[in-house]
Design a protein around this nucleic acid. Structure first.
Lengths: 258, 258
DNA sequence: GCTTGACCCTCACGCGGCGTGAGGCGACAC
DNA sequence: GTGTCGCCTCACGCCGCGTGAGGGTCAAGC
């Protein structure tokens, strides 16, 4: 036996050294990611120091979240390593953001559960934010048999172009009321924000359907739960949907308190 | 069409509403997590509003990272929701921490790659601190910039086959010195064992790098701390690594005492 | 030399959470 | 009647291994 031969390790030893299981090494051998360069006469896998070095790289890249295929690519084309790492970094950061949101969502879910309010679909959507298409159908599902929906359909049916222009003017005005409050650094619970919310409620009430504070709150919920509404508000100012949502709730609380 | 009919959705509709695939709904049906309460005469799945509500919950909990089994538990025992959510929160936060470390690790890897130093095992270990007992790398880390390492590299580079044959012969001889001592029942502190250790030291010293007793002791430590060396010695005689280790220390003590 | 026990080997199935066809009905528009 | 959908039920595939089953190998101790 030469010096080099004496330095080879069996699967179990190699596995222990790098903190993986024997099965994992078998698997890497199977898929060709890391085949030991030697075998004993009895067929035992023998890992040379070079094999171990490669294994080390494999383990590291795996920890970085790469798939085995990606690891193989990297090890066989080391020149593309930077690219890969960059992409991987971006992916991990995205995942981080997702998890942040997740924690926030779980916190909200916890609050709700603890206050014993059974989770309603709206609440769920609040958690959820994304992936809710077709809020129209949802609205119809929720309010399809309500007066509000029918009223709105009834009324707007008869609107003229001039009417719609007025509606748009009002809408713009109340958006401005909100953005002014936002730009002034006012919190959504401020007078200014609540006043804007009240304008909003009356706008709905006058133009579309009877909108008591309770219904208004449900509408506000929709602004954060339905991406279409969220997007349209957030196009005006970042996070404006959330702001409007909170202002509406604050306003509703103020109304009921008075 | 009756009211009820109008309110039920087919798989495709239900899937679209909640942003999942038809296959997913089939799967939930298969595993019993969410079976539609109705079927059309033709066998079509029909999802009622209640089904949709349940589905909504499922989707939300899935986004929170729960397994389907956990989701089922939660939906069927809502009282344990808080517990589940707490545990889930903890898990997510742990994962968050891991990802933070990961990003840091990737950044370091990137720096290294960009400065064109190919990632070495030592760097890898720096990234991952834990579970890395590769003593080869350790040796290099410890002695990588030392004269010993460079010397060894320098000298062995120029060795011919004949030289290596000599090295092997010497190596075999000193192994024999050790095994003779072992087989004779001599303790590692015996003269015979210490002489073998001294032979070993001179072998290293003459063939690889200047090896004073202090360095020799460090090498001896490696023989018990590094499974690869341990294994290679223990292949010759059981517990020989430990034996050699102790003999080396005894010899070093003898040298300094004299 | 024989057993014991710790390794090693090769199959080969299992898991979670679906994706992705294949092959065949049902519903509705033209 | 004839498309073109969408629906149905199998049923296999994927990743990264875990987890046996059934059997060889190897050094230690009797």
């Amino acid at each position: 036996m030469t010096e080099a031969t004496r330095l080879t390790l069996t699967v179990g030893q190699a596995a222990e050294q790098l903190g993986v299981t024997v099965r994992t090494l078998h698997h890497y051998d199977e898929v060709g990611l890391l085949r030991p360069s030697e075998r004993s006469p009895a067929g035992y896998r023998l890992y040379t120091p070079d094999d171990l070095t490669r294994l080390q790289h494999v383990v590291v890249y795996r920890r970085l979240g790469l798939t085995l295929e990606e690891v193989a690519l990297l090890l066989d084309h080391p020149e593309s390593a930077v690219d890969h790492l960059r992409r991987q970094r971006a992916a991990v950061v995205r995942r981080l953001d997702e998890l942040h949101d997740l924690v926030a969502a779980i916190d909200r879910a916890l609050e709700r559960e603890m206050s014993n309010e059974p989770a309603t679909p709206e609440d769920m959507k609040e958690l959820f934010g994304e992936g809710f298409h077709d809020s129209q159908a949802e609205a119809e599902e929720r309010w399809g048999d309500s007066d509000a929906w029918k009223q709105s359909q009834q009324r707007t049916k008869g609107y003229t172009k001039a009417d719609w222009a007025e509606v748009k003017a009002e809408s713009d005005a109340l958006h401005k009321a909100f953005t002014d409050a936002i730009d002034a650094g006012e919190p959504p619970t401020s007078e200014a924000a609540m006043d804007a919310a009240e304008l909003h409620r009356r706008h709905i009430h006058d133009r579309f359907y009877d909108c008591p504070p309770e219904l208004h709150k449900a509408l506000g919920d929709l602004y954060v739960s339905d991406p279409r509404f969220t997007a349209s508000y957030d196009e005006i100012r970042p996070r404006m949907a959330q702001y409007v949502h909170e202002a509406i709730h604050a306003n509703a609380a103020r109304q009921s308190a008075s």
